[in-house]
């Protein structure tokens, strides 16, 4: 084949590839994302949850209603989207399947961001971090982060994630003395009374103890992340964008902080 023919063929190949790439970028008319419009037209946001995780979602034994942090969060989201909210109580193991099957529009259920599920659902920004936090006594100024624990005593709940992480920390922090307790409240009580220098517990337990009893405070960044998020179907990008925008608003105007204050005080009566 002569040189000019080869060059002409190459030009056609490149052009064909460019056209194909352009077509791939174009949206098929029938695939328009109407997820947000659909919710607004229906006037209702259907929220899937498993009401077995107080204080985020649980059945109120007196009224039989579902209540909790996530319930209030969902109602707030609904308000900002201009729709009512309908709750669908469903077993945890089927939440993602039911979302995909269209039984509800979103899942708000103390759902932790899971990279393994990102081929089937899309996640919002995080609205709460339930990871492990370091807690010290009020007035303790020498411990501001994990590295300050050298030669100190650290309380953990036996068998908990804090216990596992405490053992990991002991491998790299010289003379860290781990003390085990049977519940997070016992760990925090020990911190408050000076029995240990610090405690490693999940943030929800820490918040509840601080509000209920005080005398301790959270220091530094969370030691581990357990990010609570809202899930939507993978293709419902418009709905996700609206939810993200509403969550940013709620963070900036103090709504999320108010929800933490309301629900993480202690177990609701």
């Amino acid at each position: 084949m002569s040189g000019w023919r080869t060059r002409r063929l190459m030009v056609w190949v490149v052009l064909a590839m460019a056209v194909l790439a352009l077509l791939a970028c174009l949206r098929w008319p029938g695939e328009e994302d109407r997820s947000l419009e659909r919710v607004k037209e229906a006037g209702v946001l259907r929220v899937g949850l498993d009401a077995s995780y107080p204080p985020f979602e649980e059945i109120d034994q007196t009224t039989g209603e579902i209540r909790g942090f996530d319930v209030d969060l969902a109602r707030e989201l609904g308000q900002r989207l201009g729709v009512e909210v309908e709750f669908v109580n469903s077993g945890w193991d089927g939440l993602y399947d039911a979302l995909e099957a269209g039984r509800f529009d979103v899942v708000i259920s103390g759902l932790v961001y899971d990279p393994w599920q990102t081929d089937r659902v899309a996640y919002s920004i995080s609205y709460f971090n339930a990871g492990q936090v370091l807690v010290v006594r009020e007035g303790e100024e020498d411990i501001a982060q994990i590295s300050d624990l050298k030669g100190r005593t650290l309380g953990v709940e036996i068998g908990s994630e804090g216990d596992v992480q405490g053992h990991e920390l002991r491998k790299r922090l010289r003379d860290l003395d781990l003390r085990a307790y049977t519940a997070p409240d016992e760990v925090l009580q020990a911190v408050q009374e000076g029995e240990v220098d610090a405690g490693l517990v999940d943030s929800i337990s820490a918040y509840q103890f601080i509000r209920a009893q005080g005398g301790v405070r959270i220091v530094g960044e969370p030691v581990s992340d357990e990010l609570y998020v809202v899930a939507v179907r993978l293709k419902d990008k418009a709905l996700l964008q609206a939810i993200d925008a509403a969550l940013v608003e709620m963070r900036d105007d103090g709504t999320l902080t108010r929800l933490i204050d309301k629900w993480l005080v202690t177990v609701q009566q």
Binding site: S52, Y53, I158
Partner: peptide, 16 residues
């Protein structure tokens, strides 16, 4: 199960 907040869970030491 020793999930810290699941209504059917127990404390980790109890699970052991």
């Amino acid at each position: 199960n020793d999930h810290p907040r699941w209504t059917k869970g127990v404390r980790p030491y109890q699970r052991i």
